[in-house]
């Protein structure tokens, strides 16, 4: 064995290792939590990860003001409470918040439009980090730009904190529909696609060839019920984030468990019917016509 020691130098933070954790979360539910107690409820319900933050998006929306990275003390208390991966949010372009989150040992950083952007032109250079990043996208061009910056997971933006799935459906249909159309394009048309998408040609060509994004595509923004989660999965999402939808509902623990089961059995309507029963009231939710353009988070990011 001694002659093998030389080549056994381990490499950390490679794209394969970073994307690998995103692969492990497929078919799962990532839940927003604001306390260690909520984190335990999420883990008990079968969450694959928790997103540690000070306020869920519904409260950020209600409170207004500048939303920033959470207090490290709060993130550490959640890390100590559960064994599943812990994610946390940094502001768009705020690479120092991301450095702090990496130093805290969080498992995934969400460069998130739910927080107030720190840079109006640049996202974080995510290749500079060992910790993997997830970024939101509303369309294929945005998704590929984030991947070109080093994102290891893409999620739909949806419209966080609304309990309304309509925007996430729009974003998933846009991303996946364009992938289907792009995979029919010939080599000359792919150049045009790259221009229209404002995305690097090699990434566009790769999607055309493989018929899929380079990284896992998850759904976020507006999931409030087991049926919402299954809808996202049937549309082609590979896992779901649930933000305000669990802890803003009447009865978080059974709802969380039901959403976990619905995400696994997303094609089985009998199981979906069974787990949707008797969960109490979901979060109230907001119609899109009740939110004016300037208050929409999905338009943040470039």
């Amino acid at each position: 064995m001694s002659q093998k020691d030389e080549k056994s130098q381990p490499e950390q933070g490679t794209m394969r290792v970073k994307r690998g954790l995103a692969e492990m979360m497929k078919g799962g539910v990532i839940m927003d939590v604001v306390t260690a107690e909520q984190a335990r409820i999420a883990e008990d319900a079968g969450a694959v990860a928790v997103m540690a933050l000070e306020r869920v998006p519904a409260d950020i929306r209600r409170d207004g003001g500048v939303a920033r990275m959470s207090d490290p003390e709060m993130i550490e208390s959640i890390k100590a409470a559960v064994r599943i991966p812990v994610m946390a949010k940094a502001r768009i372009g705020h690479f120092v918040e991301a450095q702090i989150l990496e130093a805290l040992g969080v498992d995934f950083v969400d460069e998130s439009e739910v927080l107030t952007p720190a840079d109006e032109a640049h996202h974080i250079d995510k290749f500079a980090f060992t910790v993997p990043f997830v970024c939101g996208a509303t369309n294929l061009g945005e998704a590929l730009r984030r991947i070109s910056e080093g994102a290891c997971m893409i999620r739909s933006k949806g419209e966080a904190g609304t309990g309304n799935i309509v925007e996430a459906v729009r974003h998933l249909r846009s991303i996946l529909g364009d992938i289907r159309r792009l995979s029919q394009a010939d080599s000359a048309e792919q150049f045009d696609w790259a221009k229209k998408l404002q995305a690097p040609l090699p990434l566009v060509q790769e999607v055309a060839r493989t018929g899929r994004l380079q990284v896992p595509l998850f759904c976020a923004g507006g999931i409030a019920t087991p049926a919402d989660a299954a809808l996202a999965m049937q549309l082609g999402a590979e896992a779901v984030f649930v933000g305000s939808g669990i802890f803003k509902s009447d009865n978080p623990a059974p709802r969380a468990k039901a959403i976990v089961e619905a995400t696994t059995h997303f094609r089985d309507a009998h199981i979906l019917a069974k787990v949707s029963r008797g969960l109490g009231a979901p979060m109230t939710g907001i119609g899109m016509d009740e939110i004016n353009e300037s208050q929409r988070y999905a338009s943040r990011g470039w």
Partner: peptide
Amino acid sequence: QIDSFEADIDTVIGDFHGIFI
């Protein structure tokens, strides 16, 4: 996750590249 790594390992079927997450 920041400690996750990839490395060559010795196996019954020869050298194999292992991803440890």
